[in-house]
Design a binder for these strands. Structure first.
Lengths: 187, 187, 187, 187
DNA sequence: GATGAATGAGAGTTCATTCAT
DNA sequence: TATGAATGAACTCTCATTCAT
């Protein structure tokens, strides 16, 4: 019985992300979500207190995934260039493969009215920790965690979200920005 | 007959950006916009065909400003480091000083349902041209325009939009990422 | 969950017909209908997909009633004159007693934009069948079904809808047109 | 200068009838009418006091045309059968050739809220007079004017307004009902 | 006389949420 | 727990009409 509940909750979450990608904010009404998740609108309220609560729960869950995913790709024996390459490529592939989740996260976090009530992002800690270690061992230069994050991940977003590019163009651009970031960060 | 009032149209546009910043999508209803712009809801429809048309018009106008602004700061006698510094700092200061415009642009362009119908961004051409020149003269390394854009401007966004930072922290981070990008791009 | 309330749907339909009679098209707004039916405007949309759908449903239901009503009055042992008399009188009395339904049907079917999407009138088949039988048995002359319908029923409408006549005048006129039609149709 | 005005007023009237035919009541808004007539919405109010006034003016004008048209076809030397034939055929051809006017008249007069304020139909007097004459001379039987009107013209409406019939079918049916009415009315 | 701008009121419809089952 | 019915409030947008030019 517990299993079934989780499935329903999951269906709802996926419906939200999918609708947010396809239709934006105006597409994510409770009734549309319920229709897509194949539940009743009332059922949404057995899993979440309100629409806002629902969005925040989804954000909290989804916004952590990418960091776990990236950390899983990094191996201890990698050198600095490899770590940068791995982090950026895994960030890229996670975004590409989970387009709707990422679209949701971006739209949510760009909305100050929502995101300011919901400061989470514990997940970045793992990555931050890894980079800190690399700084100490003089593998990468000594910049603040925020700057590193900005330089490693935000240029990748620029590439992923550009709808005018096809995937092979994106792949080529990814190679370029990885090279650029490696030169910027490594000694 | 009365003449169309440019100032009224401007008030509407500003109201949209301001509400989008403060309240996000759910705050930008026609009636809220009209109230803020001190016009009747019906008046909005003498200036725009529909809400979507309105948002696209605003996007088209606002998304060009920043490029004009940046290009105005660049001087011919600057060297490569100075140009990078100037572009990034002027991008930063434009975003900071026009927070609501930028919030609007980000939220609009993150919504595929809207932005896919409205591909403009002619303004970037000026910047792209300048960078192309610098590539030819071997001032900066030979990367594609898109990669350069990704590396120059997206890390800056990461800093500006982080609400947990105060302005002096942001300023310090900006210095860092400029340094990083200069190392990445210059010979 | 609550069950859908047939009585509520009926109240809505009656409200539409009644308002259409009293105020015409401009009176049949969803909010007026809802007020008259003592439901919320939103409730209308749990019973019908749209206003147009609602009007078509009502038309489909109401436009059949009269034919069933007329056929119930006709007895097998009647001669030709009696059948004509019965059909015309029952048509007349149905229209008179269900003024709002008839007003609705007339206004709906006079609006090509609506009625062209909604061609029903299966109910006439019963009457057509009866008349066909009478033609075969040489009780009435051999004219097409449409001509018979035009001659039997449309003159009656002319009388019913004339607001300048009181009911006793109408009754006298009805006698006249029945006599006229009998002479036209019977051998 | 007077000429130009009349043209504009005429354009407005025609726009109303045309929109009423194509779109029904919901299509006849002042702004749509103005657009179709190629005038400004405000201009409508220089010719008519209000929308209701406009509709009534149009009704008053258009509802007379058909009677004048019919009377023009009748010749003094015609016998009874010919007069009936001529009246019915000219009614039919007027309706067919002026579909939009007739659609307007029907829709207007079916709306009690409007038509009850606007009882005109002086034009029928000519026809009534003619029929009265024929009754006196024992050409047609002695029925009231209203009954004669009902029997002569309403069956024709049934044929004209049936969208399922093509024009040759309609023509055949017209022949039938003329024959029927002649038998009913003539000695 | 003629116009497009402007608007309060109201249109049809959907919203987030609650209720009764 | 899960539901479809129900709804007041709000949505986008158009209405008939007036105003300033």
């Amino acid at each position: 019985m517990r299993k079934k509940d989780d499935e329903k909750e999951q269906r709802i979450k996926e419906a939200v992300a999918s609708l947010m990608l396809e239709e934006g904010w105006s597409g994510t009404s409770i009734s549309k979500i319920a229709r897509k998740a194949e539940v009743s609108p009332a059922t949404v309220y057995t899993y979440f207190d309100s629409k806002e609560d629902m969005l925040q729960c989804i954000y909290r869950e989804y916004s952590e995934h990418v960091f776990e995913y990236m950390m899983r790709q990094v191996e201890p024996e990698m050198d600095g260039a490899q770590v940068i390459d791995t982090l950026m490529r895994s960030f890229y592939s996670y975004m590409t493969e989970n387009e709707d989740m990422f679209s949701f996260i971006e739209q949510f976090s760009n909305c100050r009215a929502l995101s300011s009530k919901c400061a989470c992002r514990k997940g970045i800690a793992g990555v931050a920790c890894l980079l800190e270690e690399m700084k100490k061992e003089h593998v990468i230069r000594n910049y603040s965690a925020k700057s590193l994050e900005a330089v490693l991940f935000y240029p990748v977003k620029a590439i992923v979200f550009d709808e005018k590019l096809n995937s092979s163009e994106k792949s080529g651009l990814l190679d370029e920005v990885i090279e650029l970031v490696q030169r910027a960060l490594l000694y």
